[in-house]
Each structure stands twice: as structure tokens, then as C-alpha cells.
């Protein structure tokens, strides 16, 4: 579903990604872990071209996405993204946040979008907040709305960029629950996170990144139970 070949990304002289090769198949929940500055977020943001790769190729459903003349907007509609800072649109109500993109992109009529929005809000447990504004919600609620907003475009892939890192500890659970539910429904997910519990429980595969490369990749049992790489061992000994 997603194939990444020899991906490089540098900001000026700083090389953040130094050659990543990875293949993600449908229905996988890939959890990316690693120390700060290891390039996890940049890798994720390259997947929907919020960062333009310096070199290398990315294929989604066999179609190259980082070539000139590719319609980036159409590709992005297949991929939902959830941000660390939620990035809800503060001037719109929760329902408008969810329906804006599907309606403006003519994916649904307004009525269909609202119906879908109600369904999604129910799924994330926030049916009663449809007419509130983002500023009236707690962090955990905002992030659940952000997930619903991304799902409204009916994406094939969901990307999560440290979705719980900006939350108060007691709100992490509610967001992870929504994500677990999503994983069980068979959604293909790539999750950058520091939640090792989530990685172990929900991940079908764990990638350990450091210094802009994937140092180790394997099932959660392999990575957490029997890490092969010294850097992985070192990192896990600090976070677990």
C-alpha cells in the first residue's frame, strides 16, 4: 500500500532522513518509535508530502506521489492526518470542522456530510459537542474531533504524529481508545508515538528510528522482548 524507496530529506545542511526503505501493507498498524530528532515525524510528514523529500520515491497504491505534476491534493484525500497540536479550525464549530473538507471537495453533499459527521462523532463519543467551538473542548476531546475530521474524508490510510504528546496524562487513554477501535476496524495506520503500551498492544509492527534511518523493524514482541540492535536496547532501557 505504501512503499518508500531510499527516502532522503534534508533541511539545509541538516540531513534528517538518510535513506529509508519501507513497505507498509494494507491493514497494518505501524508504530514508529525513537528518540527526539531521529526523523520520525519528518518521515511521517513526507508520506503525505507536508515535507517534500529531497531524494527517493514514495508510492501509494503503486502510484508515485513525489514526482512533478502529481496531483498532491488528490493523494492527500486518501490519507488522513492527526497532529500533535490537534490543529482544529477554531473559527468553525465541531460539525463544521468535520464537514468542511468533504463538502468543499465535493465528496459529499452537505446533508450527507452532516449525517456522516454525526456518525463519526458518535464513534468518538462526542455527539453532544457538534455545535460547540474547539475552544470549549478539552485536549482529549479536541484530538478525538481531529480524528473524526480526518476520517470524514474516508481515507485509506491514517497518519498520527504524536497524537497524545500534547495531552494531559488523564486524557491520553480516551484518545488511545479511539485509535485502538480504529485499528480493530482494519484501518491502515502509521503512528509516531511515545506510548510504548499502545505500540505493544495495538501495533502489528514497530519501527525503531534513530539518526534518520530505520535501525530495527519487527513485531512488538520482537522489538520489546528481544531487541537486536544496541541502539534499540539502549532506547528501550530508558523509556520502559
Amino acid at each position: 500500500m505504501i512503499t518508500v524507496k531510499n527516502l532522503h530529506k534534508s533541511f539545509g545542511k541538516l540531513n534528517v532522513l538518510c535513506g529509508i526503505d519501507e513497505h507498509i501493507t494494507q491493514g497494518e498498524v505501524v508504530v514508529v518509535i525513537g528518540p527526539s530528532g531521529s526523523g520520525k515525524s519528518t518521515f511521517l510528514r513526507c508520506l503525505n508530502l507536508l515535507e517534500e523529500p529531497t531524494a527517493g520515491e514514495i508510492y501509494i497504491d503503486g502510484e508515485i506521489i513525489n514526482a512533478p505534476k502529481v496531483n498532491v491534493n488528490r493523494i492527500r484525500q486518501k490519507m488522513g492526518m492527526v497532529f500533535q497540536q490537534f490543529n482544529l479550525f477554531p473559527h468553525l464549530t465541531i460539525m463544521e470542522n468535520i464537514t468542511l473538507a468533504p463538502v468543499k471537495l465535493k465528496k459529499m453533499t452537505k446533508e450527507e456530510a452532516i449525517k456522516k459527521g454525526e456518525e463519526l462523532l458518535q464513534r468518538v463519543g462526542l455527539s453532544d459537542k457538534a455545535n460547540n467551538y474547539p475552544a470549549q473542548l478539552s485536549g482529549g476531546q479536541k484530538q478525538r474531533v481531529a480524528i473524526a475530521r480526518a476520517l470524514a474524508m474516508q481515507p485509506e490510510i491514517m497518519l498520527f504524529d504524536e497524537p497524545t504528546s500534547a495531552l494531559d496524562p488523564e486524557m491520553v487513554g480516551e484518545v488511545l481508545d479511539v485509535m485502538k477501535d480504529l485499528a480493530r476496524s482494519g484501518m491502515t495506520m502509521v503512528v509516531v508515538t511515545h506510548e510504548m503500551g499502545f505500540a505493544r498492544e495495538v501495533g502489528t509492527r514497530v519501527l525503531f528510528m534513530d539518526g534518520g534511518v530505520i535501525m530495527e523493524s519487527g513485531s512488538p514482541e520482537e522489538i520489546f522482548g528481544n531487541p537486536q540492535n544496541d541502539r534499540t536496547k539502549n532506547f528501550l532501557s530508558k523509556v520502559l
Binding site: L50, Q77, G80, M81, L88, F89, A101, A146, A150, M153
Partner: peptide
């Protein structure tokens, strides 16, 4: 970024 990630131009 949020707008663009949803596929809006």
C-alpha cells in the same frame, strides 16, 4: 497543514 492534509488546495 491541517487544511492541506485533508486534501484542500
Amino acid at each position: 497543514e491541517a487544511g492541506r492534509s485533508l486534501g484542500l488546495g
